[in-house]
Every structure is written in structure tokens, then in C-alpha cells.
Nucleic acid binder design. Sequence first.
DNA 1: GCGATGTTTATAAACATAAGT
DNA 2: AAACTTATGTTTATAAACATC
Lengths: 595, 595
Amino acid sequence: MRRSPRRPLILKRRKLPFQLSESATVDVVPSKQPHGGGSTTTTTPQPPAPPSDGSSPKPCAVSLCFPDGVHIVPHPTKTDTRVVLIPPTADLQSVIGALTAKGKEHGPNGPNKFILLSGSGGQPCSEVNKDLDCCPLDDSLTNIHWLSGMSSDGNKPDTKSVKSEVKKEDIDINISDNNDDDNTSEQDSQGDGDAEADGQAKSSQSDRPPYSYMAMIQFAINSNTSRRMTLKEIYTWIEDHFPFFHQQTKQGWKNSIRHNLSIHDMFKRQTSPDGKTSYWTIRPEANRCLTLDQVYKLSASTVGTTIYQASPALCSAFTPQVQLLPGRQPARVTPGARKRVRSAPKVAKIDAPAAVLHPIATEMKEEPVCLPLNPQRDPHRGGEGGGGGGGGSSRRKQRLVLPSHEEPILLPPDSPFFDSGVASDASALRDMPQGSPSSPKLSFETPVKGGSSSDHLASSTPSRPLGSEPWKVTPLGKGTQRAMLDFSPIHTPGGPLHTPQHQHYHHTHLHHDYSTFNFGDPAFSELPLFSSPRELLLSSTAAGSAANCSLEGLMLDTINDSLSKVLVDISFSALEDEDMGTANISWSELIHHFI
Amino acid sequence: MRRSPRRPLILKRRKLPFQLSESATVDVVPSKQPHGGGSTTTTTPQPPAPPSDGSSPKPCAVSLCFPDGVHIVPHPTKTDTRVVLIPPTADLQSVIGALTAKGKEHGPNGPNKFILLSGSGGQPCSEVNKDLDCCPLDDSLTNIHWLSGMSSDGNKPDTKSVKSEVKKEDIDINISDNNDDDNTSEQDSQGDGDAEADGQAKSSQSDRPPYSYMAMIQFAINSNTSRRMTLKEIYTWIEDHFPFFHQQTKQGWKNSIRHNLSIHDMFKRQTSPDGKTSYWTIRPEANRCLTLDQVYKLSASTVGTTIYQASPALCSAFTPQVQLLPGRQPARVTPGARKRVRSAPKVAKIDAPAAVLHPIATEMKEEPVCLPLNPQRDPHRGGEGGGGGGGGSSRRKQRLVLPSHEEPILLPPDSPFFDSGVASDASALRDMPQGSPSSPKLSFETPVKGGSSSDHLASSTPSRPLGSEPWKVTPLGKGTQRAMLDFSPIHTPGGPLHTPQHQHYHHTHLHHDYSTFNFGDPAFSELPLFSSPRELLLSSTAAGSAANCSLEGLMLDTINDSLSKVLVDISFSALEDEDMGTANISWSELIHHFI
DNA sequence: GCGATGTTTATAAACATAAGT
DNA sequence: AAACTTATGTTTATAAACATC
Ligand SMILES: [Mg+2]
Ligand SMILES: [Mg+2]
């Protein structure tokens, strides 16, 4: 037992540079799309994305507007980059082949980088679930709704015994009962507790699930309609869904669960009004509403692309009437700030061309981590605006601030981040910095960690994309549990092109507290480890159709011959202001601005 | 090696409730004050507090104004609490004895809680070191001062080759060279590297130092004039000062050092302009400027009370000219908000009656962790201002938010926090939440943890208060290294009674970035583990005199017969606004408002 | 490929505290 | 009501897997 089982290695992403170099489109475009194997278990009936039936040999079309309906638009700031909008029905492989040829035909001087987006597939999802976002429950003190049946293992969430007076406006109470498709599934799974052992037996051959503790806790909490769980409930949920932990004689994993709850700022503890029970919740701003269903189902269907619900947590209504004055957005720095690319530690994220980023003046004077745009790093440092600015991009990654004068820019994939092939990151499973909007008020309370947390990614991608995982998920699902996936309200503060710069620097008031919400945070898909470029392509194809409101895309670099999955990220450095948070705009909407 | 050495247990505080219960003042006031044993090693010459020569049998004086010059003022909000201002010349024991008797004479209805403060001793320290705060160096890009001699192990910080232009106002440059007593010591220690082995031999009998990695890293970085160090330098510094690590064959401790640097948000990495070297720094707002000298010297002098420099890091000058508009302080919530008690995880902190706290509306709707004021918790919840508010105080501690309507209150020690006896906490060694002022701008950059961090205390109190520590600190100090202690600028945003509520919710701009600075954070003294109540008393006495600008005090509870050391904390929930940060007010000044 | 430096996750454990017995 | 036990939380220490330079 001492010999730690090691964290699941399968969680680790692997670098698989797109092998396209020597021979132009060699090996890249297999003639057929083995899309078959997928959908072994519960499938997603609804997605309006008809998967292209593959085998569409049309790789030679190099026109600017591909016959498939593909649109190529220039990048706002990068002359060598093109944004390629691909309809869900298009054949991704042929498009890539065409782009590769196109890129190479112009040589290093012409466009050689292509950001492939497929935003037209999904429904706008803007007003889809205005009320059924995360946090369906009202937490007002008076609302003791949750007192009803929570003390035990969460077996009786249906008995709304108390039903106290609702003090807030329309903060539901009905919302709490809002058993939509998505929530219903988990609701049930939780309801029966252990009785769920139905069809698929929880055989003893359960390996350790490929999820980190952080991910599993998120699965558990998000599975509950009220989005909160007691420690005991979390234990039970995990045991029920991952037999591996049921078999564990030692309780070390429970220690780890508690440890993770504590250290990750993403998990917050709430105390019931009576002070009797503690509920663990997920910081709404950080909650991607990831559920096991999503990951499991997606992995089962060979789809490596999951949309981790971008829901920025509309729970703001719960907050008292603090009503702080929203930071004035005007008079601020970095006037022309537009977009900016971001490269996550292990994640590849880029800003969508449409999105405007408000770079916000740096807080310190550290390195402007805006990755070097070109291989030849330009030390345009001397004339910096503020004298601060710090050095160029440092070694790995850490604490990046934009010199106030620097504009955000779309970063091409030439940086090491993008040539790293698949970015099977789990941003959705990460605990985003978030600026700790709560700390200000709590500042005087030592107990609160507040500040910044060291929460980090926990890849949730199952090892193998398809079928029969060795770690054995205990199903107990209905079958209609995918609504959650479709509801991905993306809060886009301002208009597509450029939002007015807000300077809200981590406001504290919670009223609609979308503090530090990043457009890009929400939707980064988990990519199962691809054993070959083909797999990457396949998963990408699937992603284009299934992922509505997705921010993910592919970065095709014809110079380096690399194809990387990237998170097309629209980042608003300071979204804390409530005024911003409410604006929802779908990814596809944004894309339409460019077509 | 696998069998982890365990973290130094001596770091742990112990509960030593003041044994005063059964027999009124029995056993509490020993006839003599064995103050002798102390001050075995280097003593603090300056403290204007002549220790009472003990054996002062005056426990019966129950008058409101003690002959010693003690003033007793009512608490602004708590009727059962009195604030006792004790001059440095007063005999603490007799005062405590008198207060105990007084408290018991009135029974449970009368005042039974006393907050003992000794604020008159120290110099105002308001303008003492306006310029010699933390971060003597300018970090502006143009300032390549640190490029001079940093690449190596930091052996040549004395050769200020570059001495670039000082961009800021008067931010010194002399400060960097400011070889006061404090900095000098470390400066030298670093200069000679290994040659420091002078008088006290680094015998092989070095036990593990009682400091956490986080503390040692702080020691190391703060010892450098430039307040930054490379990883290698940190290694070297620790090895040089703690022979224990020099003897280590395994390099596991280096792994831990790196681990700590990464996980603790307090530590930030900066990259030099040339991108060649990375320097580790301490977030200025979080830096208490703690040095080994302070801890070591203090422990040697039996003084359990250390003032961990409250310096909120005036380094803000380094920041570019971001110049964000400071949050408007007006129109905000919680009008009558005043003070509030806080109980840290393991730390006991209370707000000073004079301080005003701007509770700031909660961000979420969680538990108003304002600890229950009385044993009988009053669920005055129904008519709350905002309807939110959350439940009562939960179990341990975590994430507390004030319902916007609730006023901050001075928490009496009846809560479990105060009856826990000695609070030998090390808030100075903690990484405060801080709201991550930097995250906003970095929000779009995954690399930055930003948000809140799980940095936490690392008690720095040496196991034994006096002399010859087994862990063997390699001296290499001068002898006159205590300047740092005396400079404890306390930033008190507003006037004593109530500062205008600021709503700055974690501003990001760094210009004078005092974000989330808590009045109370800075000065929490480390209490060496007291083996008896007497020791607590002794240390407290010493503290009263030596600690100017100290915020510490004693909480005497005549009901529970407990005497606890507490941090009298003035907390401003949102001090991020620059306008606030510059206002310095000494603790004694605050106290004078009540006399 | 190797070594230094960084980042994250997993485990074990020491304590603290609330809740039960 | 005191004492012991258990559950729950918090924090630090270590080891390790990877990533990047
Ligand atoms: Mg947590
Ligand atoms: Mg760090």
C-alpha cells in the first residue's frame, strides 16, 4: 500500500506531432474513416451533428472557399494565419489536406498557419438554459430546501420536506427540482445509492479509473442536482461508480479525497444554516459541470472531443444584495487590445479571432508571457510602455502578465506549445485561478485560503477512446443523460470583436460573480491519447459535429507540419464585473461574425 | 529515506489553556516571575519595556483604571468585552490577576472577556521606514541591476555593478544598499557562501530545522537584498544555513523545495529580460519579510513575540504604469460595518476595536463564518439584510463571508479559537490568499495559477525559546541585525474608527498594489511552545515592550479561565486600492483613540 | 540523451475540531 | 458531563511522472 499506485499514467497527455513533414500529405489522410468502433455504450441521441460518412476524397480543392462550405478568413492580426471555418458536414481530412497543400504552395511567406474551427454545428445555446445553468439551488440562508434530504448519502433528494420560504426574487425552488435530462441521470444514480448495480456487473476486475481525484470529485458533485455533496456522499458516489475504490481495503483514498477537497480552491465547503452539515461545492466560476457521463460516453463513442460545459455558474443570484459598484470599464490601459493567444502549461489555447481581450495592465512587472510569435523572438522590449514588462517568455510557464502597452495577439502554433501535437489537456478539470473573488470579503478571515490556489489539471480522458474500459464504470445511468452536454452557455462579455475593456480587478461582490471568468476556460476538450495522427483527425472530425459552442479547434502549421488541437480561447482578463457575466454568446455566433 | 522524516513536529503549536479555573487566581500568578532563565543569548537591547521584576502581589486592584496606567475601555460592539490597554511599564501579571478577579466578581453577566493590548510601548513606526519597506529593488525592465551578479550562487550581491537608473519616485536605490542591521547579516551570509563557517562550527550533529520548506524559502529569498533568488541560490542558502540539508545524501529535499516553490502562490517566478535566468520572488503583498535572523534572534532571546514585518510590500513602484482607477470607495454595502473577529485555521486573530472593517458583501452565499458571538448562537437570520447570508458558522473553518448586512464584530474568546490557549501560529509564514491580483490580467493565460492558493502556514517558531538549537543555524551573522524588526509599517487604510468602505475587490493594477492586504496579516507573533501558562505570560510581557506596532494581544476570558494570545486584527476586506495602502498608522495610534 | 528546473498528482501523516458514544 | 472515538478538514512532507530548457 505504501508503494503508491502512482497516479494513473494514462491521464498524461502525450506529444504526437503531426507527421506530415517529409512527404506532404503522406500518411495523414487515410482513405477511410474508421468511425465505426464508437458508440458502444450509451449513445448521445440528440446531437445535430451528422458525422461525415468519411471517405470523401476531395483533398485537392485549394480554393479559398472550399466546396464543402469551408470558409477561410484572414486573421485579424496575424498575416500568416488564416482562420478556417469548417461546417460539420465537411470532410476534415480533405480540408486539412487542401490547406496543407495551400500552405506549402505559398512557401514561408504566404499563409502557413491555419486555425480550423467548426462552429456551425451546434445550436447557439445562448438562451438554451438560462436558468438551468450550474448551481440550480438557491443558497440563501432562508432557503433550507436542501435540508430536506441531504444528511444521509443523498438518497432522498426528492422529499422536499421543509420547503421554507423563498426570500429571493425568483430564485427558483422549482429550479432545484429542475430535473432536466442531464440532471436526472445523476439524480437517479444518486438516489438508489448501491442499488444501481443493474446490467453491467461490478466485476472485481476493476482497475483504477483514469481520473484524478479532482476529476472524480467533480464528477460526483456535478452529478448531484443541487451541485453539492457531503463528504460521505462523495465517498459513496465514487465507490459506486468506480468499483476500484470499493475494493480498496485501505482508506487511503479517502484521505486523498479529503486532501483534494482541501487543497483545491475549486472545492468550497458550505455549511448548512443549521450548522450541522457541511456541503462541498464547486466554485461556480470554476465549474465546468463536467460529469462522468460526458467523459465516459464520449470516450465510448470514440469522440475525443468533449465540450466541458462552459457554464460560468449563474448562481450569482444567491449572493446577498451586496451590490458593489461594478468596476468602471472606461479609462483603462491597452487601448487597442484585441485578442491574444494563450498557451496553457500543458494546454494549447488560442484566442478566437473574433474575441477581444482586455490585456489589463500587469500587476507586477514580470515576463510578458505572450509567447514569442515567431521562432525568432523579437526582443521589442526597450520601448515598453511602463518600464516594467519583465523579461521575455521565461522557461516553462508561470505568471504571465502583459505589459500594459502590449496588445494581445493570436499566437501561432510555432511556439513549443503548439507543435506539441495533441493537447489532451483537461482544462475543464482544472481549477482556474479565478482571482479568488471571495477573498476580499474574507480577507479578514484567515480560514479562507482565498488568494490563488494550486489546483491543477487532472486529465479526465479515459485511456482508450472506445469501449469496455478496464477501470469499469458502474453504469447505473438511464440513457438520457446528455442534456448537460448540450447546455453550454458561453458567457461572452462583450461583442465579438472587442469588448470594452473592463478593469474590474477581481471584484469581490458576488452578485453575478463571474469573476475572472475566462471564455477559454470552460471548453477545452479532453483528447484521448492518440496513437496516431489519424486518431487525432478522427477525434477532431467528431468534435466538429458534436461540439456545439465548442471553443476548440485545430491548428495546422504547414511550416512545421504539425496539427495540434488547440483551445480557441476568448479571454477577457477581467470578467469579474457582473455586467459582463450575463452576456452569453455562443461560439458559433462568434464565428458567424467572420463568415 | 522513504520513511519521510515527518515534518518537524516542533512546528506544531500546542494547546495550553490558561489554568485559572478552579481556584480564582490560583496558580496563575506565581509569586515570582522567573524571568531570569530567559535572555540567555543575544538579547534585544532596545525594548523600552522594563520587565516587571516579578513578585508584584497586586492582584486585588480591580479599579477600572489600574494604578499602572492601565486603561479599560468598552468594546464597541461587545458588551461583555473590555479592551484593556496596558502600558509597557505595567506588570502584566498583576493586571491579569486583577482582571480575572474583576471578571469573576461580576459573574457571567458582567464583562468577562478582556482584550489586553500593549500598544504604547513601541514608537509609532508610521513614517519610520517609508522607504525601506520590502522589495528594495526596482524590478522595472530597464533596471538590470540584478543582472550584475546573480547568475551564480549569489555570492556577489555586494558588487553593484549596474546600478541602473531609478525610475520611481524616491524608491531609493540606497534602499537596495540599505545595509541596515537586518539586511547586512544576510547579505554577508550570502556573500561568502560556504566561507561563513566561523565561530560556531557546523558540526555534524545538525538536526532538522524546525522550519517548513516554505519558511526556509522565505528566509532565503528575503535574505537577498534584491529579494529574489535563483533556485540554485536557494539551495545554497539553505544548505549554508541549515547544515542538516548539507548532510543529506538524497536530493529529495531539493525536490521538495521546487515543489514548494511551485505550489505556493506566494512564490512567483520571474524571468530575466534576457530570458536566461529565472528568479524566484515572493509576492510582495504576501511577503512578511521574514528572515531567519528575526526568528533565530528572537527565539534566542526568549521572546516569543515577534513582529513579522507587516510591510505590505511597497514594491508597487516597480509595476509599470498600469494606473488603474482605484476602486471607488463610496456607495457600498454594510454601512455600519465596523470590526470583526476572525479566527484563523489555527491562528487566533481578532479585530481591534478601533479598526473598521468593510465586510464586503459575500461573493457567494455561503456561511457567514462570523463566529458565534456567544455560546448561545443567535440565529438572527430571518430579518437579514440581503436574504443570502448562508448558514451559521460551519464546523472548522473555511471560506467565510459576511452577509452584507452583518457588521463585523469583535469576537470574544468564547469560541473554540480562543480557548485554545497559545496560538503559536505563524501567520507571517503563510501565504495569504490575496485574491490573486495578478490573475485578472493573466486570466487568459492558463499557466498562471492566479486564483487562490493553498499556501499555508509553516510555523517558524524554533522549538525551544532559548539558546543552542539542535538544528544548528549556521550563524555567519554580524550581531547587529535587528533593524528589520523595528520597521513594521502598518498600513491602516482609513482612520481608526472606521475607514470608508472600499469596494476594491482585488484590483489588479500593481501600482502600489496592496491588494487584499490585511492589517492583521502582518503581525502575528510566533509563540514558542509554552510549557506552562507562566511562559505565556512571560512572553506576553516581553512582547508588550519589544513589539512596537504590534497587533498582538491577549484575550482573557474569565468565564473559561483562559488566556490566549491573539492577533488583534484590523481587517479591511478590500484593501487592494492603492489609495488605501499608503495610509500608515501605527497600532499605538489606533489605541490612543480609545484612551 | 542528460541534467536542471518546473508543474502536478498521489500518498502518508500530523494535527485540529466537530460529532458521536 | 467528561472521556474516548470517529469523521471531517487542513497542511506539510515525499516521491514521482512529466514537461521544458
Ligand atoms: Mg478547497
Ligand atoms: Mg509558486
